[in-house]
Design a protein around this nucleic acid. Sequence first.
DNA 1: CATGAATGAGGGTTCATTCAT
DNA 2: CATGAATGAACCCTCATTCAT
Lengths: 221, 221, 221, 221
Amino acid sequence: MVNVNHRTRVAQERREKTRARLLKSALLVFSKHGADAKVIDQIISLAGVARGTFYNYFRNNEELFAAVAAESADEIIRIVQPFVDQFKDPGARVACGVRMVIDLARLRPVLAEFVVRGGPSILSKSAVVADAVMRDIRDGIATRRFNVANERLAFDLIVGPVIMGFNATLAKRVSENYPQELARSVLQSLGVSRTMAGRFAYQECGEIVLSQDSLLDTQGG
Amino acid sequence: MVNVNHRTRVAQERREKTRARLLKSALLVFSKHGADAKVIDQIISLAGVARGTFYNYFRNNEELFAAVAAESADEIIRIVQPFVDQFKDPGARVACGVRMVIDLARLRPVLAEFVVRGGPSILSKSAVVADAVMRDIRDGIATRRFNVANERLAFDLIVGPVIMGFNATLAKRVSENYPQELARSVLQSLGVSRTMAGRFAYQECGEIVLSQDSLLDTQGG
Amino acid sequence: MVNVNHRTRVAQERREKTRARLLKSALLVFSKHGADAKVIDQIISLAGVARGTFYNYFRNNEELFAAVAAESADEIIRIVQPFVDQFKDPGARVACGVRMVIDLARLRPVLAEFVVRGGPSILSKSAVVADAVMRDIRDGIATRRFNVANERLAFDLIVGPVIMGFNATLAKRVSENYPQELARSVLQSLGVSRTMAGRFAYQECGEIVLSQDSLLDTQGG
Amino acid sequence: MVNVNHRTRVAQERREKTRARLLKSALLVFSKHGADAKVIDQIISLAGVARGTFYNYFRNNEELFAAVAAESADEIIRIVQPFVDQFKDPGARVACGVRMVIDLARLRPVLAEFVVRGGPSILSKSAVVADAVMRDIRDGIATRRFNVANERLAFDLIVGPVIMGFNATLAKRVSENYPQELARSVLQSLGVSRTMAGRFAYQECGEIVLSQDSLLDTQGG
DNA sequence: CATGAATGAGGGTTCATTCAT
DNA sequence: CATGAATGAACCCTCATTCAT
């Protein structure tokens, strides 16, 4: 009995590991070749598994892409949320989120490229991202911290500049304080005064330290 | 001799027409399937020409895409610029440009989809678009109408929300005054006061009337 | 572990077999349509494999042609060399080689056609063929058995008539003793006396028996 | 009436000229790309005529190739025959023919390349070439100047080395006296004694001077 | 007779997916 | 569950030929 459980557990761990290797490779390849790249060959050779093995994990390309997108969105939230949660004020929260996410783009260019290639749809579709952002927006509007016509517009005013910020970060044409200035301007677009926006954008909010064992970690082997 | 000239002219006109048909069809198909879709079949059947005819005009997919992108950028500028040029103040100009371009997305959804799929790169790469936007940005900063860290950031603050606005427009989830509110918020992000931003965003600036004979017109036959 | 080795070995054997089937079919088709015929369709249907399978073995037409040419040259040498090696005297060796190769053309018309279509280049380019012939030429000149201006000329004097001989053999317009007479005349052109040339050309030198399992065997299934 | 005749004559001259331009271009292209090259594009642009014009002169590729081959064979005979006709003895005639034709290959490499690519078939099929060669062979055998098994063999012994000689000439790997030595060896292969063969091969027989207005002249414009 | 845009059959190549081992 | 050879649909591209002007 113990033996069987052991065998089962070991097998499951191996499964997880192979799946993780596939996801990691897929992220890398998608980030370079776009959503519907024809790339299973590249992915499996990167992951070091055989052709057929792939299909033991994902029924097809589309399912794989969805998995990578979901995993990426989760990853972003998992990393950024703790910093954001230091703050109560929705302005402070949005500013911190914007800064952190731009910083993450610098630290994980592959992730950023994936998002840029996937376009707005990846971030918009991810329930977990949309939820996190929308909560702060609603709170900001309800408490009159934000002065903006409606929630959807606010979402576009945040996500649009952030994606362009990813682009700029990847192209390495950003100054030292680009994240802060971007955050400040975003708050201004939401109706926060320039002074308050500057205060939120520049206040200390911590530094990302990348864990080495993320499912999508593409620095480590 | 007259005969030869006539023959030549007729041939040239035929060429122009076929090329236009191909570009029109390509825009439609690219807008649905993205930049590197393998779609020559669809394009030629839409354009109603033979396979070989395609290759009399474009060497391959990539060349076609570039042509469509260039034509699209030209088209956008050609339509929007006259409205923008009514104004001197860079704030007024940016507001008018943003509104018009969002409105154009509503009138030519195919064009908008093409831009959204192509991502920032289409608009950023188009020299003609980048030039037009950057000129107003520089003017705004120089005359202190805008208060923003630098030109590149300003570009991202304009283009990011506009692309999200395209997305929203295509999804039909925009209120009546979405263009104006988007324009207002964009100006605020550039450091224009909420009051001034509102004035620029809501002032009369004309209405787009689509010509029927655009190279990329996809309403007409 | 045994299992894995077994799987690997079985796969490899399958690969060899498929490759051989493709080469065999390709020889047949090239022999009928020349070097740069566009014939992958015919080859795969002859070999009874799918379109994609071809590209698992050869990147393109050209690579295939090179493989067939190399294999053909090897085949010729493999069959003829043992007979030639019975003799020491370069005259006897050249005579035997010429006769055997003409005889081979009769027994494997497909091979002969392939060579004729490919022209001198196939035989000249094949290092293995050129080496074998040149060695005897050098030996003949060094030992004064041959009296001929230089090595290159001697090569042309042997290969030229042999290719014409292939042609004649394929057209079935050769008498019983055509191989012997051709060999004799070739020796004479190299400066061997008519008497000696006749002796070499007509001495017993064996008979080709085709193995059924050659890579390029086109008689067997 | 005179007028009509004049118009007719002028038209006919123009036809001839266009046809000649097409043949010249075709020779050039065939010599570089082989018999069934897909090259009408290249030919017409070289000849400077329009696509459709081609089909006013040749029904298809094959007909064109046949015309070029015939014209080439004629050209060779037209140039070489006068030199050969200086001599009566079939040995002298063959020697002179071989030398002249190799020399021609040097002076008109395009022509030589065309023959090499076309392989034996071009020379063998050309009635005019075959006739000229065969007449001398028959005469040589009948008068016992040649000692060779049969006429067909003799043909192969002459044409084979000549084609290899073309090859060698094109590759520029021939010594000064290659033509003479080749001729000598060919005569030896036909049973002429080495002494006599040498005498025939080295006797003065004139020098080719290229006319500038040959139908196939590819030096002039 | 010259022109050159249009044609489309005919060939090449890729790549997601299947399946026997 | 891993493997990798085989598959074939879906593309891509070329080029000889036609035909309206």
